[in-house]
């Protein structure tokens, strides 16, 4: 896929689109820094948790220790090492968020593309279904659906599915809006003339052109999903012990905020760091994919 950039006016010069987007993204310093922070956090959670000499589910002999060299994030009243727990929680939260973003991104894109391309009654019906999901507060539906998950080891997958089922309409609406304008373009008409079927048009012509918008939307959903999962775990219907997540840690330690503040601040700080870096990455991607912005103005 190439983007034609005009150099000098009449000589079309093709620049590989991905390199162009990457270059624009890297020029956005805050977004680049956020990407580094996010990758480091993920690396720390997935690799660091395995290397750290305490495990999230094994008691240490130290109860309610404030942060020290031995326990950088301190320990809780039962002797769990908080660093190990926060790393494990980060791992769970990030896994769920990425899963939610992937599922709702793919499903929402296809849904929106099909609706937008077909138009008419199909479009109306499909979008009504999408709107239907949005009239219910996500946390209520998620609590009902996730209530039976219990503490099974695959519970996080189900929580991810539930959250994806509640976030895909955002992607679908965005993609549909884009497809409505795309389908009037010549290359779609050309593809139709050559006898391309609906699915071929959707996957070969529409979705690649909507990819920028989809990627930005999916990035934002990662941040939304992190916050939704932590909220769900906080009210007691998300990840359950013995497994742990950042929301669950805050829920368990909310009464300790005055006496052992480290138990409350570290998990929260991690949530904010993850969500903030993801939001900044999304912002940088939005600018990088935005072709309407002339580069001379920046």
């Amino acid at each position: 896929m190439v983007e034609i950039t005009r150099a000098g006016g009449d000589v079309p010069v093709a620049t590989p689109r991905w390199r162009l987007v990457a270059r624009r993204f890297l020029r956005h310093r805050l977004a680049t820094a956020s990407l580094v922070v996010f990758l480091l956090l993920v690396l720390l959670a997935f690799v660091g948790g395995a290397l750290w000499h305490y495990s999230y589910d094994v008691y240490t002999p130290d109860n309610s220790h404030p942060p020290s060299l031995e326990h950088p994030f301190g320990t809780d009243a039962t002797g769990y090492d908080l660093l190990a727990q926060v790393l494990r929680g980060t791992q769970r939260s990030v896994e769920i968020a990425l899963f939610v973003a992937a599922v709702s991104g793919v499903f929402g894109s296809v849904w929106g593309a099909v609706a937008g391309l077909h138009g008419g009654k199909v479009d109306t019906l499909m979008m009504r279904v999408a709107d239907l999901v949005l009239i219910f507060p996500a946390i209520a539906v998620a609590a009902v659906l996730a209530n039976n998950v219990g503490a099974s080891s695959q519970g996080w997958l189900l929580i991810g599915l539930v959250l994806a089922a509640l976030t895909w309409p955002y992607v679908a609406r965005l993609v549909r809006g884009l497809v409505l304008s795309l389908r009037e373009r010549e290359f779609i008409a050309a593809a139709r003339t050559f006898g391309a079927g609906s699915w071929r048009i959707i996957f070969r012509h529409v979705l690649p052109n909507a990819l920028g918008t989809i990627i930005v939307a999916v990035t934002i959903i990662v941040a939304v999903a992190i916050l939704a999962e932590t909220a769900l775990s906080f009210i007691g219907f998300g990840v359950r012990p013995p497994d742990t997540s950042l929301g669950l840690l805050i829920s368990q330690n909310q009464t300790a905020v005055a006496t052992r503040p480290w138990l409350f601040y570290f998990p929260g700080l991690f949530i904010v760091l993850i969500a903030l870096s993801v939001n900044f990455i999304g912002d940088g991607l939005r600018d990088a994919f935005d072709n309407t912005r002339s580069r001379s103005r920046r």
């Binding site: 941040a223 916050l227 909220a231 805050i250 829920s251 949530i271 904010v272 903030l276 993801v278 939001n279």
Partner: peptide, 11 residues
């Protein structure tokens, strides 16, 4: 704005 957008309400 970005900070508040990234902060869990319960926290």
């Amino acid at each position: 704005g970005f900070l508040l957008l990234s902060m869990p309400a319960f926290w």
